[in-house]
Design a protein around this nucleic acid. Sequence first.
DNA 1: ATGAAAGCGCTAACAA
DNA 2: TTGTTAGCGCTTTCAT
Lengths: 338, 338
Amino acid sequence: MVGIDEVARHAGVSTATVSRALSGNGHVSPATRLKVEAAADELGYVVSSTASSLASGRMKNIGVVVPFLDRWFFSSVVEGAQKSLLNNGYDLTLYSLTGGGAERRSVFDHFLLRQRVDAVIAISLELTATEVTSLHALGKPLVGVGGPIEGVRTLTIDDVAVARLATEHLLSLGHTRIAHIGGNKDLDLDFHLPTNRRVGYENALDAAGITPAAELFMTADFTMRGGYQAAKQLLGNPHDRPTAIFAASDEMAIGAILAAKDLGLVVPRDVSVIGVDDHELADFFGLSTIAQFPQGQGAKAVEILLDQLSPGKHLTPNLNTPMPFELIVRSSTAQTPR
Amino acid sequence: MVGIDEVARHAGVSTATVSRALSGNGHVSPATRLKVEAAADELGYVVSSTASSLASGRMKNIGVVVPFLDRWFFSSVVEGAQKSLLNNGYDLTLYSLTGGGAERRSVFDHFLLRQRVDAVIAISLELTATEVTSLHALGKPLVGVGGPIEGVRTLTIDDVAVARLATEHLLSLGHTRIAHIGGNKDLDLDFHLPTNRRVGYENALDAAGITPAAELFMTADFTMRGGYQAAKQLLGNPHDRPTAIFAASDEMAIGAILAAKDLGLVVPRDVSVIGVDDHELADFFGLSTIAQFPQGQGAKAVEILLDQLSPGKHLTPNLNTPMPFELIVRSSTAQTPR
DNA sequence: ATGAAAGCGCTAACAA
DNA sequence: TTGTTAGCGCTTTCAT
């Protein structure tokens, strides 16, 4: 392993100059900078991140905590964050909490505290006050993605507005019997997302002078199977079945499309379906949806954090940053049959 | 941040003893170990990983490189590795190469070399000789998952055997016109997987005295849409259409099931379908498949690496470790109609 | 079994 | 603009 002093000797300067030239901190004349870079290149020198971190207190590494990794939303956010970090010379250390309680405690009590990360991104995780406090005590910036955390800067789409938009799209097509497949409330990783989306749905109906019917609301677990079962229930009713379904996630919406097919109904002729996410499968199924952009959310989280880490810059600490969303109309929604 | 000397003072011992007691290296009397642990607990002491790494040369961190993250196989392997690492006190630093060439170079030339990881796991990545060499030059153990890499320890299922098993399952049900949807060869991240699976398919047919028909072989891109299109082509043929399809991945197999439905065919009455993976959606679609266990592959990769890192133990360097697979029969395969 | 002390390889005052 | 040098917080010989 070639070290900094070897580069210094090679370039005929001091180690301090090498450090300055390569890191960009401090002033170095263009001429010497070139000399140093050449020497470093030639020797294949790469700074030892441990030594650099120990001396400077900066890790150039940020921790990302997710409840699971094998879900489209989470892995997409992580991917967005990763890309952005790479461009900034940062590493991403991943903590996936699949194991449950014990693992979670070990991550928060131990892993995140050992001076290995400069900041942390928590994805769709409802952090306890203790967890937030211990992170803040270390002076580690923290941002949440996908749900508001008490006293923490977070990025999330406006779930109420998203649901309202989806419902309004259906209303504008003439639908009046619009069902909603929401999430069960005990999905603790999803905050009040299920509730908020239901509220948006009801708001839109109210505004159109329609009273939300209890029998048109079903809950499921955000999976395709859950959506399928709920939709079968909804559409199997021989009388007064809904002409449109708004599902709180694309996976559930796809399940609903499949359920409709199995019941001999044609989408969108007999029933319109809209979801939320713009999941990777949405296009294949022709699903209309409200797109959110998880990769962009990951990238934005990184941007905020790096900004917070750069000295001097102290952003307005507005606690919730709304993220963009967008209606995408495909072939699963159409005018109501007259 | 409370440091090691504070703990030492608190416990009435030297910093060296604290280090030994907490790390498990070197001999410490049970009594003092207890004292030290108590003091550390009380003060909420956590070793500074940077200082520890700098002094010891061990990072307790391993790098995982993936081509993408938002695919079931990759995220599952990562999740398996993560879990296993956490239990061993290791961190996982993730590099996702989505960006292409530039990103890839930056990861291999820079990120992986800065003494931050003890070893690396490459998932479904065909590493160049240069990449392998530079990693080996640093003495960093390397294991590949999901495809053989020249001169590198790898974990993979026996693709030929997997394909043979899937095909034999269909043969045993009486099918003789069995189609295969394979991968296009230019998916460079997939090694010879497409070819190997095709070979296994043909082997099985040959053994049954059936000549593989060229018109029963289609390629696709491992996605649901690709499988759908290929299957429409295969099943749309009014004469002599296949009675069974073996797809090289579950996503393609699910696409095939949907295509069959759209053509008015009933699975498995009119056509049987089998895939490979045991994807999270396989169960919902009732898909028979050859399961591979990506989480287990991730865990196994970690096990090998940690073993390699522990002093003394030098495993047999058998270059390819075959991973388990298993036929799972659901409702998409049945006896051929007589 | 424990302690003293010399680094690990770099960064950041401080000086020049 | 550049060099000198004192740490960063731990681990690990080498003594004892």
